[in-house]
Every structure is written in C-alpha cells, then in structure tokens.
C-alpha cells in the first residue's frame, strides 16, 4: 500500500503509525484475540457434534435407502424400499401402538403422581427432605439393576406381587414372562409401572422447583378475595406451573420414546411382540438381524415422529402454557 501523496505521509506520522506497527497492534488487539479464542473454544464441541451427531444423522438417512449387513463391501441402493416394507408390515403397526401406549401411559401417570407428591410436600410437611430423597432415589439407580429386582417382584412363582395377590385369592399371573399362563396383556403395564417408579421422583423434584417460583403475594391476594384451596390450586398454582409441566412433558416424551434398558432386561420385546417398541425394533433389526438399512429406516421414522410431536407440543403450548 503506497502512500497516496508525500504530504499526507509526512503529517500523518504522528497519529497514523506505519503498516508494521498497525499490524502489530492488530495482532495484539482484543478483537482478534476474541475471534481466535471464540473459534478455538467451540472447535472441540463442533468436531464432536459433527462427527457423532450431524454426520450420523445424515448417514442414517442414506443407510435407510440401502440394504447392507455390516459385512458386504457394497451397500446396495434400494431407494425407499425399506420404508415401503416397514409401512406395509402389520408388525410395524403393532410396534407403533406399543410405543404410543408405553410413552403416553408412562408420561401421564408419572407426571400426575409427581405433581400430587410435589403439591403435598409443599405443604410444609415435617420430614420433607427424607420423603423427597426416598422418592427420588430410584432415579439414581442404574435401570438394569433396578429392572433385575423388579423382574423378581413380577416373577410368577416366587415374586412378591403374586404372593401378596394370592392372599386375596387372585390366581398367580405371569406378569412379564412368556411361559405357561402368560397373558400378553400384562407385560406392557408391568413395564410402565416400573418406569413410573423410576421417573416419578424426578418429575416431583422438578415440580417442587416450579412451585418455589410462584410468588406468595398471589396467594395472599386470592385469600383476601376469599378463594379456597381448590380455587387457588386451579387458578394460581396449575397455570403458573404450566411452563414446568410443559418442560417435563417434552422431556418425558423423548425419554420414553427412547426407552430401551428395561425392555431389554425384563421382556426382550416379548412375550410375542407385546412390548416391542420402536427403539427395540430398531435394535433387533439393526444389531440382531444385521439389517442395517431397515434398522436405519426405523430410526429415521422415530426421529421424524419425535420431531413432529415436539413441534406440535410447542404449537399447542401457546394455548395452555402461561409464562409469568
């Protein structure tokens, strides 16, 4: 960069330093430091996100259009054949129904029981922290370990559940097994009850956190207006708790759609296909029968369903969630 005129260079020397000095200042400037540090600091995160999240997602879509068994050198491109096959299978309808059943029932009852317990615990009850710790504790146990204990609770011949029921003359039920006298009817409720047991405390603790944010002035004002406990619950507590309810609803939907551990340990999708959910269906196809393409197609459909459900939930939320 040559100076445009001799005069300007002469006079500019005091306030307009030379190129190398300016370069040095630029090198030492906060701005450059910020830009470099910013990108350096997010680089590890974006490397991981790219390699283990976004690329796999795109790759899944590609794999779902192929037929492959992890071994053969070539992935055979089959277009949307996997999807057509999936949607024409009767078993896929069953899988969809199982997933919905499991997810909706678990979510509703887990949230409801969490809400009721949180409301009770918020009445300044003595020993709150003990109750809270006890009810939350299933959440910190590994699902597999807990499921093994529940496997025994549900056991047909030795399980405590049947032992208790037999006191009332109820015949022994094979809750989750596929053996003699197995009723496919009971397997899913058994799994759902286990999952409610596992997640109830988590919802309760979140609801309790939500309750602390409700300003007490509102209740005071309502009391002056002569509102009873039920009115306060209906018109203050529940509306002001709705952001937390919404948050828990979204979380619960995602986690129940992704549930795998308890199904694998307790029922392996059985008896028959009574507890085969989408994630388990993907596992069986992808990793037990090595149908990579079909398994990927199931995973993609799972993703799309979850995406649609979440968007719908956010849309509906405008109607019932009140942000203070």
């Amino acid at each position: 960069m040559a100076p445009r005129g001799g005069g300007t260079v002469q006079t500019g020397k005091q306030d307009n330093p030379g190129l190398s000095i300016r370069f040095w200042h630029w090198l030492r400037s906060q701005r450059l430091q910020d830009v470099l540090t910013g990108y350096a600091f997010i680089a590890p995160a974006f490397l991981s996100l790219g390699v283990w999240w976004w690329f796999p997602m795109v790759y899944s879509v590609y794999l779902s259009l192929t037929e492959w068994d992890f071994l053969r050198p070539v992935k055979k491109f089959v277009g949307i054949a996997n999807y057509l096959k999936m949607f024409s299978h009767a078993e896929f309808a069953r899988v969809l129904w199982n997933t919905t059943y499991f997810s909706v029932a678990t979510t509703v009852f887990s949230l409801l029981s969490g809400l009721v317990l949180a409301l009770i615990l918020y009445q300044k009850i003595r020993g709150t922290s003990v109750y809270r710790a006890l009810i939350f504790s299933p959440w910190v146990t590994p699902t597999v370990a807990a499921a093994l204990v529940w496997l025994w609770i549900y056991n047909r011949d030795m399980g405590i559940l049947n032992n208790v029921l037999s006191l009332f003359g109820v015949p022994r039920i094979d809750w989750i097994g596929s053996g003699r006298g197995a009723l496919r009817l009971w397997a899913m409720p058994s799994l759902i009850i286990f999952t409610i047991w596992k997640t109830m405390g988590y919802n309760m603790v979140y609801f309790m956190a939500g309750l602390t944010t409700i300003p007490s002035e509102l209740y005071e004002a309502a009391e002056i207006d002569g509102a009873g406990t039920w009115d306060k619950l209906r018109h203050i507590t529940l509306p002001l708790l709705s952001p937390m309810t919404f948050f828990l609803l979204v979380i619960s939907l995602i986690t129940t759609f992704n549930a795998f551990d308890q199904i694998r340990v307790m029922t392996r999708g059985g008896p028959g296909d009574a507890t085969r959910t989408m994630v388990y269906y993907m596992y069986q196809n992808g990793f037990e029968s090595f149908k990579v393409g079909y398994g990927s197609a199931v995973a993609v459909v799972l993703f799309v369903i979850l995406l649609i459900l979440t968007i719908v939930q956010f849309r509906l939320a405008r109607k019932w969630v009140h942000y203070a």
């Binding site: 794999l63 795998f260 992808g286 398994g295 993703f303 995406l307």
Partner: peptide, 20 residues
C-alpha cells in the same frame, strides 16, 4: 446450531456411529 442437537434422539446415531 449446537443446541438444535438436543432434538436428535441419540438412538438414531447408533448405527452410523458403530460404522464410523
């Protein structure tokens, strides 16, 4: 962009991650 990953269920990444 980073936060949008929260929407992706982790199971969808399992088959490709296994291959990688």
């Amino acid at each position: 962009v980073a936060i949008s990953t929260l929407m992706i269920p982790v199971v969808i990444t399992y088959i490709p991650s296994y291959i990688i």
